[in-house]
Amino acid sequence: MERKQIITSNGANIKPTKSAMSKKIAKFLGLNKDGILFKDEINKLISKGELTIVPLLEEDQIGEISIDLRIGTDFLAQQQGRDAFIDTTNDQITSRPIKSHFRETRRRTGETLLLNPSQPILFSTLEYIKLPSDVYGVLTLRSSYSRLGLTLSSIIQPGYCGCASIEVTNNGSTPIKIMSGSRFAQLRLIRIKRNSNYFNSERKYNCQVRPIASKANEDKELNQLKKFLNPNS
């Protein structure tokens, strides 16, 4: 079998070696050390205490290449408040916090919540997760929910600990009823080649267990940017 030539960014032609080829195949199949984690690897990490997902109500939540995550009990629903817009540029004590644009509501496990069209809803997964420092997570909807016109796409940093935050919007024109405790999202775990310490940088969200409204207005760089226009501020 003839090996395909690879053209590098500087235009040089190289023929891949046999070992490079098998690494590519292994990566494609997820058999390499980095790349997506399979069920047996996920279970191994859990049993070694390197990966935490609690509570795991049913073992079959762990599928071949993903873990089903459930809807938690606390929700933040965006609502039109006194202000005409959400101000992400101001964190002064006199300005209204971003969370004032959200209504906090709770459901018992088994109770339902309506996802109204175009209304962003924030909630946490029922499961508390702690990822190893060399594994990140990709969070997507289970296909049953994507088919209803819901969208979700989120990444969980290596070493993250807390309930996963879900921000979902109903893009359809019909309200959708969901149930607290039901399987809603899928988490795929991908191993990276280097370790990454989640707490190396100061985090806004620490071991969170309830949904937390955006803290975009707490970004420190905002003050620096404001000085562009008013150096004395």
């Binding site: 609690v54 509570p55 109500l57 009990t73 496990t109 508390y128 309930c163 969170q208 267990v209």
Partner: peptide, 16 residues
């Protein structure tokens, strides 16, 4: 946060 989640995990697992 850890206290709250510890309690709620205990309760939900029991009920499940």
């Amino acid at each position: 946060n850890l206290i709250e989640k510890s309690i709620s995990n205990f309760e939900v697992v029991q009920k499940w």
